[in-house]
């Protein structure tokens, strides 16, 4: 049985809808939900299962999980986006220069990147966060630095591939400066790879933020974060498993959406899939 094309393509659509919804929640929840709804403790309904009053139940302090998870989206998305942006801002020039200039510059930069890649990203992020002192801003820096070597490596590979294309040589003989070649001929051609990689990195960054916060070395209370919520649920797993399930599902849905969207983007932008006769 062949799966219809429309269904296969819907992967990207579902992914896009999921990602868009989570981003909208992250953006709009703080506007429409007063903060005290999420911090208000309902002492009579601690660890309450889902009810009409609390559709997703409450935590150990009687706080409404639905509001908390909606407001937590903001923190997770903000940290992940900022961290990925940071790794692009550092990794893109590094990778471009390494790939286009080559020679000694490339050797030195890539040796450094390879060394950084020997450190597990999560370990690197945890260490940096512990060193700088865990808070929201340092979590961004920690994840951003930890992800930079991956991005630099991928961009360098793409830049190297594109720099050898005949159209880049054609651009040289057409009298373009190196700067113009990088900006007009190399950058547009590596953008698909950068976009795909950013989407996937965003998914990993959400996971990393959750991991860091879960270990207490990421977002700190009173900021609401999904990782933090899961951490808090650990002691009440027997009595109130929904306290872990609610934020866990939130993370999963977001990351799944990003991965689906990323997969579909990669299929659509795959150089093998276009051009050629």
């Amino acid at each position: 049985m062949r799966i219809p094309a429309a269904f296969r393509r819907s992967k990207g659509l579902i992914g896009a809808i999921l990602v868009l919804s989570v981003f909208l929640v992250a953006l709009l929840a703080p506007v429409f939900i007063p903060e005290d709804w999420a911090t208000q403790m309902d002492m009579r309904a601690r660890l309450s299962p889902p009810t009409w009053a609390h559709p997703l139940g409450t935590d150990q302090l009687g706080r409404d999980l639905m509001y908390r998870v909606l407001l937590g989206a903001q923190t997770s998305i903000y940290i992940a986006s900022a961290a990925v942006l940071m790794s692009i801002v550092i990794g893109l020039p590094l990778g471009l220069i390494s790939g286009y200039v080559g020679r000694t510059t490339d050797n030195v930069l890539m040796r450094l990147v390879d060394t950084l890649l020997s450190f597990p990203a999560l370990l690197l992020a945890l260490t940096i966060s512990a060193v700088l002192g865990p808070n929201l801003q340092n979590t961004i820096i920690a994840i951003g630095i930890a992800f930079t070597p991956f991005l630099a490596r991928i961009i360098r590979g793409e830049a190297l591939r594109v720099a050898q294309m005949p159209y880049v040589e054609g651009a040289r003989t057409a009298g373009n400066s190196d700067f113009r070649i990088i900006v007009h001929h190399i950058l547009p051609n590596i953008m698909p790879a950068v976009i795909v990689q950013s989407t996937i990195s965003l998914a990993f960054a959400i996971l990393a933020e959750a991991g860091l916060s879960f270990l207490g070395l990421g977002t700190q209370p009173p900021d609401a974060s999904w990782g933090l919520m899961i951490q808090a649920s650990r002691d009440y797993l027997d009595r109130a498993p929904w306290t872990a399930l609610v934020p866990g599902v939130a993370v999963a849905v977001t990351v799944l959406g990003l991965n689906m969207f990323g997969d579909a983007l990669r299929d659509a932008l795959d150089p093998r899939a276009k051009g050629g006769s």
């Binding site: 159209y167 054609g170 050629g276």
Partner: peptide, 29 residues
């Protein structure tokens, strides 16, 4: 040199920048 000598490459699918309009590519030189 490049004012006087130009090159035409083998692979027609790789010798033009896929993200630039044809007029812009001819305009560059």
């Amino acid at each position: 040199v490049w004012r006087d000598i130009q090159m035409v490459f083998q692979d027609p699918f790789a010798s033009l920048n896929p993200y630039m309009r044809l007029a812009a590519q001819v305009a560059e030189p």
